[in-house]
Every structure is written in C-alpha cells, then in structure tokens.
Nucleic acid binder design. Structure first.
Lengths: 164, 164
DNA sequence: GGTATTTTGTTCCATTTGGAACATTATATC
DNA sequence: GATATAATGTTCCAAATGGAACAAAATACC
C-alpha cells in the first residue's frame, strides 16, 4: 500500500483526483490504515535520520528499551518484527554510542540483557516529541468521542492481531 | 514504530508481557496504527516477493494503475510517496515484463502515460486477494457497527491528512 | 527571442535492509 | 554421558532503497 503522504491528491490541487484511490480499491481499510501509518511515522523518521543520524531500527530499539526495564535482542526482534541481524547491528551501534547497556545473561550464555542509559533515555524523550506532534497534527482532526472510539477499536485490533 | 507483527507479545506465550508496549508509550495511537498497518501488509509483501518476484514499489505501481485509467510517473510518486527514482525503476521493470504500457505524452516530451495491461490487471487481481484475506483476518475481529465506525473515522483522517 | 529557472524522469552511488550461513550455547533424546 | 536438534546473536553478501546529480524539456521572465 501507499508509503508516504502525498500532497497533491485532493481535487483542490490536482484536477485528476488522485485521492479517489481511497475509495476505489479492493482493500480500502488496509489502504487507509497503511496511508495513515506512513503519514504518521515517515516524516518523523526522516527527521530522526537528519537530526540524530539514527536509522529506523536504531530508534525502534531505543523506543522499546525506553518502555521496558530490560530486553534481550530476541525480545526486540519479536516486538518490532525486524530481522535479528538488523537488531544485532542496531544493538552494537547504540551500545558504542552509549545509548544502552548490554550485560551477558548469567545463565544463558547466548543472551545479553539490554537496558537504556540515561543518555539513551534523554535522546528518546527528545525524539518522541516529533511523533507526538505528528500524531496530534493528524489525529487532532477527530473530536473527543471519535478519538475514544478509535482508541477502543485500535486496542481491540492490536490485541487480536498479537494473538494470531 | 513497530514494523511487523510479533507472535510472542501476549502473556499467554511470553511471561514478560511484551504487549505492554501498546499501553506504555507516549504515542499509543501512532504505535497501534503502525503495528496494524504492518501486520496487514508486510506478510503479504513477503508473499508477493516470494511468489511473484515483485518488490513493494513494483506492486504499488501496479496497484495504482489498476485503479486509475492512466497515470504519469509523477502521479504514482505523489500517490505512493516513494521517490521518483524508485518509481522510474519500477516502471521500466514492469514495462519490460509486460504489465504496463508507456506512451510518451504528445505535448510534454518529459512525460509518459502509464496504463495497465491485461496481463498486469490479471496479476493485480491475483495478488490483491492476499491483501483481502489478511484484512479480513485482522479486521474481522470487529463487529459490523465497529467496522462502519472505523470506516467513517479512517475516511475522515485520510482526507484530512491528504490536505495537509 | 534569449536567458534563467523549474519540471520530469533517469542514472549513479552510498546506505539500509534482510535472507542465509555461521559459531556458540542450550535443550532434547537416548 | 553422548549425540542430535534448536535457540541466540553475529557476520556475510545480495537486493532494495533513496538522495544527489544529471539531461532534456517546459515554463517564466525580460
């Protein structure tokens, strides 16, 4: 599905009404959810890359660690769905930058426990503001009731999906 | 945000409740929308790559052309948000495979008009079934009323977003 | 009409991504 | 205890991606 918001889809700016694609396809919900997701995150990831030099996997790792006391690389891979090698690379990059700690597991020699450093948490807190602003820019179009309804539906769907 | 569904997030299968991330972050809606979007499309893109040898950009191009009478490369770039060079590559790949026609514009020598071929439409129709099935697998968790509500909210949001 | 600037799509090249192979460690099986 | 299999994270390497540079065509400006 679409990957990024386009700014010439609506009739006002494009006589050929490219926005008709929202209604004119076999999987309208998928298309629209994907469009929204990309609208929400892609501009922010661009900013993260430009301003902080982190790629997506690196920030995702930081994001996960910012919300969990400790994780293994495997946990992160499961949470993010990214391949293990991507996580491995991100771990070692972020470790060398001082954004996380990595302590080998005392029992299982294959694993190490990852925790966020103060430096890492500070960076996360700076970066996440961009996501918050973008979320408000887009979802702010909904009124309070709609926002609550969406919240309920989203939670239902993610829990359902996570159980598949 | 997360990129792909994980299958070990819920407590039933993971004692450390990785699914807590859905509630435990600053941008819950963004996270959940992104999670859903990726759950909806990524497995299908994997299938497309494996079964048909098309990358994401190539299928997106086909998808756009399947729903519009004709488009320029620029249109597709605007609709999908992908860089022009990616579209250019996809155009020439799909052209050589016989999935689209490309006719230079009579007035503007820089542009060409892209239309889907019968072969291309047939391929699209085969592929989109995978998206339909996945959409139903995930969104089928909603009842009819919820589904209608989501439809309304999604349309409101995408139109708002396209106008930003 | 001449020149400057913008647009459109292509090509180049560096970075990112992700499947596969791998080494080490742990678990399962006998 | 010995062997087979699976799990964990790392490294290799090919493919995908995307910014920048570019050429040709169109538009803007004088």
């Amino acid at each position: 599905m679409t990957e990024r918001p386009a700014d010439t889809l609506l009739p006002a700016s494009n006589p050929r009404n490219l926005a008709a694609i929202f209604d004119r396809n076999e999987v309208k919900d998928t298309y629209r959810i994907s469009y929204l997701a990309n609208s929400l995150v892609l501009p922010v990831y661009d900013d993260i890359k430009r301003d902080f030099g982190l790629n997506r996997g690196e920030y995702l790792l930081l994001f996960c660690l910012a919300h969990m006391p400790e994780l293994t690389a495997q946990d992160v891979a499961n949470m993010t769905g990214r391949p293990r090698n991507s996580i491995s690379r991100a771990v070692h990059r972020m470790l060398s930058e001082g954004y996380l700690n990595r302590i080998p597991d005392a029992v299982d020699g294959r694993q190490a426990w990852l925790t966020i450093t103060r430096k890492g948490r500070k960076l996360h807190e700076t970066i996440v503001k961009g996501f918050e602003a973008r979320e408000e820019q887009i979802l702010g179009a909904l009124d309070k009731k709609e926002r609550q309804t969406l919240d309920r539906i989203l939670q239902k769907l993610v829990l359902h999906t996570a159980g598949l």
